[in-house]
Computed example of a mutant assay.
Amino acid sequence: MDSEPSAEVIVVGSGVAGLTTAVVLAEAGRRVRVWAREPAERTTSAVAGGLWWPYRIEPEPLVGAWAVASLAVYEELADRPEETGVRLVDGVHQGIRLDDLGAWAGRVAGLRAVPGGLAARLPVIDMPVHLAWLRERLGKAGAVVETREVTDLAAVPAPVVVNCTGLGARSLVPDPAVRPVRGQLVVVANPGITTWYTSADDTSGASTYFIPQPGGLLLGGTAEDDDWSLEPDPATAAAIVARCAAVRPELADARVLSHRVGLRPARPAVRLERRPLPDGRALVHNYGHGGAGITVAWGCAREAAELAVAAG
């Protein structure tokens, strides 16, 4: 990527896609501003479980490359977990076979078959810490984050505009192909579990997983299509705990610390492309990452930055 300073880029959106794209651009020498309706700690990214794995995201051939590129970055960041929020943690994906995965799986070191599933040592990202670290890295690169409500991408005053608005793209672009997939989590006091576990049920909106994080054990989960509710549902929370306790009985009596709800920005395929604005300026879209925005963040950010640089 060309590292010469050039035309300003405004990145719209402060979730993991927006901040990571802004970091790549700023560190390449671009003048960057991030416009965000709300701070990063209030985005969907902040409430994500944080386990690296391509989940509910298409198209798989492209997703694999983006995910593997991101994996390499997270493996490096895991050397500084207190600073970056990234750790490498062992765990098991129950009910998944190597044959079910794309070619990208061959690039995941240590991924292996075990009775009933796959075992791996994967990045687990403490999202509040990681988002704060991204903002700090962004500031060191000379970029700024501003609180701005954007209602018209064509009105954003920059030669190159990068749209990382996630679910907001549904109304902002507008793009009716973007829709919410609601995820609910329960955070409990960790009784001593040090590994992650997942078991997804593709036939329903329920799944079972637990992910150890510094602030507690995250229990999940749900994948409820077209549900816009951000309010935790008590019955759903109880069912999540019960499913996790069926795997690890000690969780039945774990103290509940908090409840989280996030709306994944689902789309039939990630939209990562450059389009002209009505006046000829460039608009780069980078949204629709479904349940894997963290998993593909760096791969997508680099591609979006290449498109922005080529336009600017």
Score class of each variant (00 low, 15 high):
L62H: 10
V47L: 05
T84D: 05
V9W: 04
W53P: 03
G91K: 00
A26Q: 05
G95Q: 13
Q94T: 13
P61F: 11
A7N: 11
T44H: 02
R112Y: 08
V108Q: 06
W53K: 01
V68R: 04
L25V: 04
A113S: 15
R80I: 03
V16C: 02
A67P: 12
A67K: 02
Y74H: 01
A69S: 15
S45F: 05
L111A: 13
V32L: 11
R30F: 10
S6T: 13
L101P: 02
A109G: 12
L111W: 03
A105Q: 11
L51H: 02
A103P: 11
D100R: 13
V16I: 14
E8D: 10
R87D: 00
V63M: 10
L111K: 06
R107Y: 15
E83T: 09
G106N: 14
D99K: 14
V86L: 08
Y74N: 00
T44V: 11
P54C: 09
P54T: 09
V47R: 08
L19I: 04
A113H: 14
G110C: 06
H93V: 08
V92M: 12
V23E: 06
L51F: 07
R97L: 15
A17F: 00
V23R: 04
E38N: 05
V92L: 13
E38L: 10
V47D: 01
L51W: 03
A17K: 01
G85S: 11
D100N: 13
W35N: 01
I10D: 03
E75Q: 15
